[in-house]
Amino acid sequence: MITIDVDMNKCQHYGQCVFEAPEVFQLNADDKLEYQAEAPDEMLGDLEAAADVCPMQAITLTRE
């Protein structure tokens, strides 16, 4: 399992992460980020890609 944490003090809701891992990250109707806190290991590649493209470097991934 991978735990996903987005530092909402840093996140500017740019939505770049949404394009790398739409299963986990979405922009809601108010253009605010919503995300799932956990994802299966198979998604690691997509999640790392999402963390890489985040302009604010707000996404932290932890593997359990």
Binding site: H13, Y14, G15, V18, F19, L27, D31
Partner: peptide, 8 residues
């Protein structure tokens, strides 16, 4: 400026 969804 702002309007993230529209720009994305």
């Amino acid at each position: 400026i702002g309007m993230r969804g529209a720009v994305q």
